[in-house]
Design a protein around this nucleic acid. Structure first.
Lengths: 294, 294
DNA sequence: CCACTTCTCTGACCTGTGTCAGAGAATTCT
DNA sequence: AGAATTCTCTGACACAGGTCAGAGAAGTGG
């Protein structure tokens, strides 16, 4: 195995957490237990308790006691949800907002002190390297997996896809155009980032050994990570594994990034094969033996 | 202030610690409290208790109980130091070594899983960016400060400097050449990285308004961080602040990096002014108003 | 109306981490 | 030899974090 690289990453982690992680957390948890401090941040403008429990991954008993401690300190107030009085809503008081701002200021002060010791160019280098690492970690966190055609997360992606097209196409977009679940005789792929849906795509048969790729979409926050290309390749590989040798797809002239993606992916433009009004352009690719997922 | 940059660094810290930091620590502390796991690593080939306490920054009572827990699990043995029976020495048993290797393996497995999801080029990008960040953080952690001429840490640096020259000069180096503490009528500067001495340098008067910079040295682990340049500039600034307008220094032909440093720093070579056998080359710089520390 | 579910809170409990004071053994200083 | 110092261990204590079972209030469905 690649032990040298692994060791270097671990070395970095040790160094980084010791120097920066500690730095910021210590500032945060200076007067106040870390749990309470985090909760103050997480409450923000006001959140219901159930949501907080979910976001912070806490036991209901523990969270309840944390909330109690904060109300005793008059930093938050807790009241019942107007619609469902079982649910309770936590909100920051004026003192809570002040405390939160103070914690925020302190945590930022630690970073400011660090940045102060660097030249302007070095600061930019730092930010640049951090952005690159983050991008790579996010890329590694992305998963692409087949899901049943009716999968709720996938359907949700398709609706967001439709909503986006409606704003991008001058003529709008009719949501009824989306392929119905029972119409998918190929495969639906769903991409996730840390469990949250991040993109989708599906293919269906046009004829024996001929497939059509549809509804390839990447959620805005996941763009720029190469996910479109990855989904496209995965769909091709999956279709090939099901005996498909030719893949077609149609797209709209307004979707310039998509067109670029298909061109780079080895697709060539063909005459229109579809009667969908949105498919202004058509593309085709012959799947060879070399088609691989990645 | 530069709130945007600060916010971006904090964002990165949150993301990174959540994704990678957590990852490794969870693997480490899976079956075993983190304190015990860390102790197992720190003991390594065998260490005396006092040293462990220092390295991990633990209370003697707490450490004692951690050691007890590990001995009860037959992972370590503790015996008295042969020379001083108050001091105790902890050593891993065979089982302890196995356990340590297992923890190590698990922690590495988390990283390996991550790296596996990246292409080879992405892996290199990740390592490269991490190395850059680490370099920048270390640079920011370096401090340069004046110390009394007899400061033990500074004297220690000078001895290490002498030891290094002894190996680098074909003719060796006589430690008696080092400027005595009572001979320093200028300033001694000491560089530290996280408290540990990382380099030194000093200047003395050759004549009114003329100073000589001596014994500029950077500890091997701190090289490549621009510390030599920083020490040199700081010495110049300090001398200028004490009314010095001309700085001279002598060096040995074997010290090519130093010679390069002086050339880049605006020094020009002059005829030898010193009778020291090690000063094969001599340099001089006139300090202008623009001389600044940084 | 009744049974069931959902949501929060309370009390009891556990573990890990950390601090403090002092005892006891070994060593060093005078 | 006796006093002072060094080093480790023990016991007592505190607190944060976290888990579990169950009570009680509020809502939902038949």
């Amino acid at each position: 195995m690649d032990t040298d690289r692994i060791e270097r990453v671990r070395e970095f982690n040790r160094y980084y957490t010791r120097h920066l992680g500690v730095l910021t957390d210590r500032y945060l948890g200076q007067d106040r237990p870390l749990g309470q401090a985090r909760l103050l941040f997480e409450i923000g403008a006001g959140s219901d308790v159930r949501e907080l429990r979910e976001r912070l991954g806490l036991d209901s008993g523990y969270l309840s006691r944390l909330l109690r401690a904060l109300t005793d300190q008059k930093l938050i107030t807790v009241r019942a949800h107007p619609a469902d009085r079982r649910v309770r809503i936590a909100e920051l008081t004026a003192a809570g907002h002040a405390e939160r701002a103070e914690l925020d200021r302190r945590s930022a002060a630690g970073i400011a002190e660090l940045l102060d010791r660097l030249t302007d160019g070095q600061r930019d280098q730092l930010l640049d390297a951090q952005a690159r690492i983050r991008r790579l970690l996010r890329t590694a966190a992305l998963t692409v997996e087949p899901v049943p055609a009716g999968d709720p997360a996938a359907r949700d992606c398709l609706h967001r896809y439709a909503a986006e097209l409606a704003t991008r196409f001058p003529e709008g977009y009719d949501p009824a155009t989306i392929t119905a679940a029972d119409q998918v005789d190929g495969t639906t792929l769903l991409a996730r980032e840390d469990g949250r849906p991040a993109g989708c795509g599906l293919w269906i048969h046009l004829a024996p050994r001929i497939a059509e790729i549809r509804h390839l979409w990447v959620a805005p926050p996941a763009r720029g990570l190469g996910l479109g290309r990855r989904l496209l390749h995965a769909l091709e590989a999956d279709a090939a594994a099901h005996g498909v040798s030719i893949v077609r797809l149609g797209t709209h002239a307004a979707l310039t990034e998509a067109i670029e993606l298909y061109r780079r992916g080895g697709y060539r433009q063909i005459a229109g094969y579809s009667d969908s009004v949105y498919n202004q352009l058509a593309f085709e690719k012959t799947l060879g033996q070399s088609s691989q997922s990645s």
